[in-house]
């Protein structure tokens, strides 16, 4: 039982460190949202599961509150991530410049009103493709 608790806690800490490194290194706000909200959810769930097993096995104390905290994190974290992504999109936070498709913007603005920056970017990408060929 000690080895199971050790594996759970150490893997949880490892995923949390990966999430923190991802928040610093990734280039764009939407990518940082992926790393922060989702990887840290898995890491913290593993740590809390390890703590729950420790209290159950060594102190003979069944703590229901920890299981409730795990369910709470799984329900609330994707809701918060979705709200942040939606609010960033409607406040015109720029996506990373190598973004391939942008169908959401096309469907919301309409075909005729593409901004001039998008037209320039499309032209640059065509020139790069011609240079590669």
């Amino acid at each position: 039982m000690s080895s199971i608790i050790a594996i759970l806690v150490l893997s949880g800490v490892f995923f949390s460190i990966i999430a923190a490194i991802g928040v610093v290194r990734l280039p764009d706000m939407y990518s940082r949202l992926h790393a922060a909200s989702i990887s840290s959810t898995l890491g913290v769930s593993s740590v809390l599961l390890g703590v729950f097993l420790y209290f159950w096995y060594f102190n003979n104390n069944f703590e229901m509150t920890l299981l409730l905290a795990i369910v709470l994190i799984f329900v609330i974290a994707p809701t918060g991530a979705h709200m942040l992504a939606r609010s960033a999109f409607h406040s015109d936070v720029e996506p990373y410049k190598l973004t391939i498709l942008n169908e959401l913007r096309r469907d919301e603005i309409g075909h005729e009103e593409l901004r001039e920056e998008d037209k320039q970017r499309a032209e640059e990408r065509k020139k790069e493709k011609e240079l590669e060929e």
């Binding site: 928040v23 940082r32 922060a36 909200s37 840290s40 913290v44 740590v47 809390l48 994190i73 974290a77």
Partner: peptide, 16 residues
Amino acid sequence: HDKIVALDAFGVMLMA
């Protein structure tokens, strides 16, 4: 928005 994302991650790590 970057600051809010990092604070959300910070709060969840505080729980652990």
